Amino acid sequence: MAKNEKAKAKTEQAKGKTKETLGRAVGNERLTAEGRAEQSKGDVRQAKEKTKDAFRH
């Protein structure tokens, strides 16, 4: 299950980066903000998984 969560984190980060870049390109502040938020969710998920891994080893 941890690998699944790590994959979700990477996917969220990538989607967020894409949204942010697209938002900046077209001048859409809302899309840019959504992208940043999605990246943050991915970062938090990834940090949580790294913390779990640290306690497993």
Rank of each mutant, 00 (worst) to 15 (best):
S40G: 14
T32Q: 12
G27M: 02
A14F: 01
E34G: 09
K3M: 06
Q13C: 03
K19H: 12
N4W: 05
N4T: 14
A54G: 05
A2M: 09
G35T: 07
E49F: 01
S40V: 07
S40D: 15
D43F: 00
A2W: 03
V26N: 13
V26C: 00
E12M: 01
A54K: 08
K8V: 08
K15A: 12
K48I: 11
K41I: 10
S40N: 14
K15L: 00
D43A: 10
D53Y: 05
K6R: 14
L31K: 07
K48F: 08
E20L: 01
D43L: 01
T21M: 04
D53R: 10
K15W: 01
G27Q: 08
A33L: 09
D53I: 04
G35V: 01
K3W: 04
R45L: 13
A47V: 01
A7C: 00
K48S: 14
Q39A: 13
E29M: 07
R30C: 09
D43T: 12
Q13H: 00
K41N: 10
A33G: 12
G35D: 11
K10A: 12
E12Y: 06
E34S: 08
K48Q: 14
E20Y: 10
E20C: 03
L22V: 08
N4Q: 15
G16I: 01
E5S: 08
A2P: 07
A9R: 01
E5A: 08
D43W: 03
T21Y: 00
K17W: 02
A37V: 13
K19Y: 13
K15Y: 04
K10Y: 03
T18D: 11
G16R: 02
L31W: 10
G42E: 07
V44L: 04
R45V: 11
K15F: 02
A37K: 12
Q13N: 07
A47H: 05
K41A: 15
H57Y: 09
A25C: 01
A25P: 10
E38W: 03
V26D: 05
E34V: 05
Q39S: 15
E12A: 02
R45A: 13
R24A: 14
H57N: 15
Q39T: 15
D43N: 13
A2L: 03
F55R: 09
R24F: 13
K8H: 11
K15V: 04
V26S: 10
A37C: 06
Q13G: 08
Q13F: 00
T11G: 04
H57R: 11
N4R: 05
K41V: 08
F55D: 08
T51P: 00
G23R: 03
G35N: 05
L22E: 15
A54V: 06
N4L: 06
K41D: 15
A7E: 15
R30G: 13
K50V: 09
E20F: 08
K10R: 07
K8C: 09
K48A: 15
E20Q: 13
K6Q: 13
L31S: 10
K8G: 09
N28F: 00
G23Y: 07
N4K: 12
L22I: 06
G23L: 01
S40W: 04
Q46L: 10
T51C: 02
K17P: 02
E49Y: 06
E12I: 00
K17S: 11
T18S: 05
Q39F: 02
G42A: 03
E12K: 09
K52W: 01
K41G: 12
R45W: 01
Q13A: 04
H57E: 15
A7G: 02
K6H: 10
K50W: 00
E29L: 06
K48V: 13
D53F: 06
